[in-house]
Write a protein that binds this DNA or RNA. Structure first.
Length: 550
DNA sequence: CGGCTTTGACCAGCGC
DNA sequence: GCGCTGGTCAAAGCCG
């Protein structure tokens, strides 16, 4: 009966493999361990699955109601049936639902009657029957659980990819929306340069790139980044007074900009515009800092990183590590990882640059989030006090429903957006946001119901309970115009958010559920949060490798 | 053996 | 000019 089963009942393979496959602190090949894509079934094009997420369950429900109908609301297309058709054991309840996809001969319904008739030893009729029945009933339940587990793993996998896809789509669409909003709000300020650009570029690049995003592959990430770039530039030109643009150009001009691959696209689109090069340099300088609670030495964001340096930073006993992306030769993306001086459970990861190569699905969440955040920052706020846009307007434009998600640090030398994922979630906060505008709802063909919650804790193949300190925080969108440096600024931020009572798993789940259900604006930050959660607690003792330098 | 980490050295920017 | 600091380089060693 167990022949052909690749699953075990001891644990959820999705999550267990995630942990065991986590090779080391720095490399975590995306798509493998992060999403667990290779561990179970053949990875199909998950984006074609019109799965209703409302039918999914979390671990608790899975454990307590294994015999209940797991997918009353789950609609599997016909081409999905071979996913389960080779199973030799059928749960009685499943016969009704899967009879359309399995031949009748394959419906080996294990009932008590079947078990009785199968018994051949007549001498054990008295006491042996009951024990045999118990035994075979136990086996039957085991088979049911295995069946259940297998189906739910497949379901989990679909949802994982779906969330990643939605996250990327949302980031791109949201940036485009912000661009349009700002254009509408400030039509008189549109300068000649913008008009000239649009005249010379009658075919808007952004819609095309949004179309590109529909490809559920790494190309989507590329397109998302491109959108971030283009929207950033567009808003830089249209939403900022020209004098500020020039000021920004002069300040951010840097020789480092020559090797920035993703900007080649932008250069093609806007060839001959000197402002583009400066914007590229600005993109190089813009930073997105992610604060997350994690015991791991580095958060797992789906990319491959190589450590190229470590230094002691002023004011922090913990060393700062420097990493560069090694997923492609010449990728300009770098990141700094440092623990918070005050709360060493907080890991501060600062990203800089944009990838110039396709990203695996696991890396797209973080990449698109950081790209969007960087674009947001660069388009709306700059370090110079006289060049600042209306921060409140920007805040509402960027995060209309969740106005406390990101801290924009315009402090010198680099503009930085901090996504603070360390705060305790307040479920009420997530429930309060107004219903999202219809244009925020990413349409999924064949997906009539909104993204449902119980699946969320495993959405990246990782249960939240692995790091009960990881939280979906409210990000605080405030315009800080201090003159402190990045590190000092981050330390200041750490004081402003006293730790709250750690939420229960249920609270976290419900908060995240409400967030993603009621407020699609959380999607990007949520992806980042989940990414940070992935690494939490996996290396409990690995944070002490303080190789002090200098 | 290739890729990675470690770590001292080097460089640039900035303030005094 | 000097010192401080952040960031990077590159040689040496480690590891699978």
């Amino acid at each position: 009966m167990g022949k052909g089963w690749g699953l075990t009942l001891d644990s959820d393979p999705v999550t267990s493999n995630l942990f065991t496959n986590k090779s080391n602190s720095t490399t975590n090949v995306a798509g493998g361990s992060f999403l667990g894509l290779k561990q179970h079934h053949h990875h199909r094009d998950m984006f074609q699955f019109p799965v209703s997420l409302a039918g999914s369950r979390d671990d608790d429900r899975r454990g307590t109601s294994a015999s209940s109908s797991p997918s009353d609301d789950t609609k599997l297309p016909v081409d999905e049936v071979d996913f389960f058709s080779d199973k030799k054991v059928r749960v009685v309840d499943d016969v009704k639902k899967e009879s359309i996809e399995a031949p009748a001969s394959d419906l080996d319904v294990n009932t008590g009657l079947l078990l009785l008739t199968a018994g051949s030893d007549q001498s054990t009729v008295d006491d042996g029957v009951s024990s045999d029945m118990e035994d075979k009933r136990a086996k039957n339940e085991l088979a049911q659980l295995q069946d259940e587990l297998k189906r739910m793993n497949a379901e989990n996998q679909k949802l994982k990819d779906m969330l990643s896809h939605v996250s990327n789509n949302y980031s791109a669409l949201h940036m485009h929306l912000v661009t349009l909003m700002q254009q509408q709000q400030q039509p008189p300020q549109r300068n000649r340069e913008t008009q000239a650009i649009q005249e010379s570029k009658p075919e808007e690049a952004t819609p095309l790139q949004i179309l590109d995003l529909r490809r559920p592959s790494a190309a989507g990430a590329e397109a998302a980044e491109t959108i971030s770039h283009s929207s950033s530039e567009e808003r830089t030109r249209s939403g900022t007074p020209p004098s500020n643009v020039e000021k920004r150009v002069n300040r951010e001009e840097s020789p480092e900009s020559e090797s920035w691959g993703p900007n080649c696209k932008v250069q093609k689109l806007n060839s001959g515009k000197p402002v583009d090069q400066s914007t590229e340099a600005t993109m190089r300088k813009a930073r997105v800092s992610v604060r997350a609670r994690s015991e791991a030495p580095m958060i797992t964001d789906g990319c491959q990183w190589r450590k190229y340096g470590q230094k002691m930073a002023k004011g922090n006993p913990c060393p700062r590590a420097y990493y560069r992306c090694t997923m492609a030769v010449g990728c300009p993306v770098r990141k700094q990882v440092q623990r918070c001086a005050d709360d060493r459970t907080i890991l501060i990861t600062t990203y800089e640059g944009n990838h110039n190569h396709p990203l695996p699905p696991a890396a797209m969440a973080m990449a698109s989030t950081t790209a969007a955040a960087a674009s947001m920052l660069l388009s709306g706020s700059m370090p110079s006090a006289d060049g600042i846009m209306n921060p409140n307007l920007l805040a509402r434009a960027i995060l209309p429903c969740s106005s406390s998600m990101a801290t924009i640090s315009a402090s010198a030398p680099f503009p930085t957006v901090t996504l603070d994922l360390t705060h305790s979630p307040n479920p009420l906060q997530f429930q309060r946001p107004p219903p999202p505008p219809t244009q925020f709802q990413v349409p999924f063909p064949g997906q009539p119901t909104p993204v449902s919650s119980p699946q969320l804790p495993q959405v990246f193949g990782q249960p939240l309970y692995n790091n009960n300190q990881s939280k979906f925080s409210g990000l605080q969108l405030s315009q800080e115009m201090g003159s402190s440096q990045l590190g000092h600024h981050q330390q200041k931020q750490q004081h402003q958010a006293p730790p709250q009572q750690p939420p229960t798993l249920a609270d976290t789940v419900s908060a995240a559920t409400a967030a993603i259900t009621n407020d699609p604006n959380f999607t990007a930050a949520l992806a980042a949060a989940i990414s940070s959660i992935i690494s939490g607690g996996t290396h409990p003792n690995s944070s002490n490798n303080n190789n002090n330098r200098q």
